[in-house]
Amino acid sequence: MSKTLKEIYEYDLIEDDGIDYTVDEWFNTIMAKTKDQLTVSDVSRMLRQKICSRVAIKRAIEFLNDDPFIGEMFEGQLMYNLYAGKEKYLKLFYQQMRPMLENAGLMAKSHHWGSEEERTEYMDIIAKFAQKIKEETDNEAC
Rank of each mutant, 00 (worst) to 15 (best):
E117V: 13
T4F: 02
I30A: 10
G105W: 02
I61R: 05
R48P: 01
Q77N: 09
D16S: 12
I51S: 06
Q49G: 14
P68V: 02
D16T: 13
T4D: 10
L78I: 08
N103M: 15
G18Y: 01
A32F: 00
D16R: 09
F63P: 01
N65C: 11
P68C: 03
E102N: 15
M46H: 01
L5K: 05
A130H: 07
E87K: 12
N139P: 00
K35G: 05
M31H: 08
Y83P: 06
I8L: 12
E135Y: 04
Q95F: 10
I57S: 03
T34V: 09
R48S: 13
E117G: 07
F74A: 12
G76Y: 00
A104E: 04
I51V: 13
R54K: 15
D20W: 15
T22D: 14
E10H: 09
I133N: 01
N65Y: 12
S41H: 14
K33G: 05
Y9C: 01
S2E: 15
D138G: 00
A141M: 13
D138I: 00
L38K: 00
M31I: 05
N139Q: 10
D17W: 11
R48L: 12
T29Y: 09
D124P: 01
E62T: 08
F93P: 02
G71W: 11
Q96S: 13
F129Q: 00
M1G: 14
Y9E: 06
K88E: 14
K91R: 14
I19R: 14
K109Q: 15
H111K: 14
Y122S: 01
T120W: 00
D138M: 06
I57P: 00
S44V: 00
L64C: 03
Y80V: 14
L13G: 08
C142A: 07
A60I: 02
F27D: 05
I61G: 04
S110N: 13
D24K: 09
R48I: 11
M46L: 11
F63M: 03
L92N: 10
Y94I: 04
Y89A: 05
E10D: 11
K6C: 03
L64K: 02
A84H: 10
S44K: 03
I30R: 02
M46G: 00
K128F: 13
A104G: 05
G71L: 05
A56T: 08
D17T: 09
T29F: 06
K3F: 08
L92H: 06
A56S: 05
N139I: 07
V43K: 04
T120A: 11
T137D: 04
